[in-house]
Design a protein around this nucleic acid. Sequence first.
DNA 1: ACTGCAGCGTACCGTACGGTACGGTTCCGA
DNA 2: TCGGAACCGTACCGTACGGTACGCTGCAGT
Lengths: 227, 227
Amino acid sequence: MSIAATTPVPEAYTPRQNAVLESALGLLVEGGERALTTAGVARAANCSKESLYKWFGDRDGLLAAMITFQSSKVKAEPRVSGATGRAALVSQLTGIAANLLKVLAGDVSLALNRLAIGQARRGEADLGQLLREHGRKPIETRLSALLEAGRREGLLDFADTREAYRTLYGLIVRDMHVRLLLGDSLDGEAPGARAAQAIDEFFRLFGREENTGPAPERTGAGNERTG
Amino acid sequence: MSIAATTPVPEAYTPRQNAVLESALGLLVEGGERALTTAGVARAANCSKESLYKWFGDRDGLLAAMITFQSSKVKAEPRVSGATGRAALVSQLTGIAANLLKVLAGDVSLALNRLAIGQARRGEADLGQLLREHGRKPIETRLSALLEAGRREGLLDFADTREAYRTLYGLIVRDMHVRLLLGDSLDGEAPGARAAQAIDEFFRLFGREENTGPAPERTGAGNERTG
DNA sequence: ACTGCAGCGTACCGTACGGTACGGTTCCGA
DNA sequence: TCGGAACCGTACCGTACGGTACGCTGCAGT
């Protein structure tokens, strides 16, 4: 409950601490949570347990620091380009979608999500909230901004941004994330192809046909799918 | 690794063992995995640890038994009605979707998924595989059968059943499952409304418009293809 | 009534882990 | 050169947990 409070202010760690967090993440990606013992982290990072406790205060503090550290690494997202038009919107959405799939399927992301989920209980959800805040909020804000821009341009038509975002998320990710979390391996499922298809489906649901050229839905032209 | 092998054949437990598994599930729903100690289960179920080990062989065996037991409880699904036509298909799909949402959001399901996910590692995924086998496979087969029936009736149009199923799953569940697993609480999001909307969206993607009109009874009519 | 079995409750063991303490070393500023 | 701070490595402590052993009770079969 005091995860956000244990770290007083710094929020940015020294290079040495970053290295320790890095090897801790490696340890987590390998053997899972049970491999993430304080002694193990100290041994893997060539540091002392005493330093660990001094820097992160607690084992939970270490876990929280690992999450914020990892999210800070992924923050290197480029800004949205100012281009307008349907093609630009589709391109940007597809890029974000593919990136989302790639991130979600990454080893470190999966390990951290497994850690937070395994930790979560009914009410208390320490790491889960932290992970949602640092991992999912950014994606949501970026996608939502893009959707609303598309709506302002008259390319998209939806009432509730959050609802539209969630549907888009569902079309992109489907059950892939939970399957991966449960240990399944995604067979083929190239991120790029899936992203493009999801964006296409999203436009068929929320696109304004006047701007899409040959309106597919009303004319019964058919929605051919390629599996 | 020997989860499926530890239980020799029975697969069905005595009432006493069922009661023990029930209280173990209750213990898991409450305090999470760390509350699920062998001593705790024995105390909560008024049985001895020795009996626990005799019945389930191992702590992992107990966990696996909890999963199979819980899935056997949910197996009380009614068969599909033989009714045909678009309305009947929509009704059945909506019912299954709402039921899926309700099950996924259930306390026991969430607790077991958290347990299996927390346990899962890169390669090894003991409980995860078991959960996928007993929890997700049934839903997939039922929904897939329904989708293919709709396609045979000319109500739906898709090439790959598995792909269509996954998109439907994404439309229904979206990010709700992972959010719940991470400890978030679904704000409003009534299962019925979400299910109906998801089915509607699915039909807008994969429905054949020619048949959306009043087609009340169509006993096994073929696929008339226009154009 | 006798016997054996299933099961409860408890005690016990070994290990593993979170957390702390301590000595030794390096490095930096005075 | 000195003092101290940071830190490494290791040893140590208490506890908690998985797993086993043992004594006792109740019940079925004969």
